[in-house]
Amino acid sequence: MSVLAIINTQNGFATKSGLESASYAAGLAAQIGTDAVSIVAGPLSGTEAIGAAGIARILHHEAAVQDSGQWAKLASAAADSAGATHVVCGHDHFGRAVAPRVAVRLNAGLVAGVTQLPEGSTVRKNVFSGKAMADVVVTTEKAVYTVTPNAFGIATDESKATVEAFSADIGAARETVAAFEPASGDGQVPLPEAELVVSAGRGLKGPENWGIVEELATALRATTACSRPVSDIGWRPHHEHVGQTGITIRPNLYIAAGISGAIQHLAGVNQSKTIVVINTDPEAPFFKAADYGIVGDAFEVLPKLTAAVHALDS
């Protein structure tokens, strides 16, 4: 018996989502009295962090794997070999493509986007774009869980992982990656993983005014986001759009300037730990969902906040 974490890497190191899955798998393994094992493919140098997250054994497939079908074959072979009863993966782009395929191969019930460790066969996840939660029961012998980004802390214990070579028949690839284009706003943490987010809406009046938003984000080392109309009219790129029809995020801090707080916007951000709202209209619905608020003009308030952050840092 064991719990298997499927860990995606970048430049040889586990992604943040990968380490969150590793920690989740270790927590679950401790709960049911077994070991946490992981499967990793391609160049691997970050074994320390994976061990520190609680993984005892790393099954290492030497060649990198890209295709989700091949990944599924590799991960289910690893699950079989490790006798895994539970498989854990991040609920990020990688996990959304791979975990469901693994669930099909293992005939395992899958719960997508879990936010807590299970109790027995019941586990909690978010539904209705964060407006509610559901406790889901897995009815099959094996279970696959994908872990919501930023919901589960990364463990950094003293423990170390052993590395074993692992191979399996993964068939031929159907997809080839031709190019990768990094999102603008280089150097920012990708939005789904960001712990600090500065977001702005139509209240900023036009794309030429985003400098004050970016300056605050830079000062805080935060990632920028926006409301839907702002990305629809092309003021900001699509990947910054948060909300019910954009990205759902749960950072530690979400600062919203010039955003009214429509229900569809709130759905994507209301799980943030701390919400700050800056709006000229004291009746803006967003204040009801906020922890801190400033009734005022974003054009005046944002530069003051940036200056205050600089003052704090110096």
């Binding site: 964060g130 939660m133 029961v137 009815t139 801190y292 400033i294 308030v301 906040l305």
Partner: peptide
């Protein structure tokens, strides 16, 4: 299928929003 929903729950209500004076933005930081 492989799972079923046992129960739903609504997230806990937010406490009241703390309003900070616009002139004193540094207090927010």
């Amino acid at each position: 299928g492989g799972s079923r929903i046992e129960r739903f729950a609504l997230p806990p209500e937010k406490g009241a929003c703390k309003i900070i004076d616009a002139e004193n933005a540094a207090e927010l930081i």
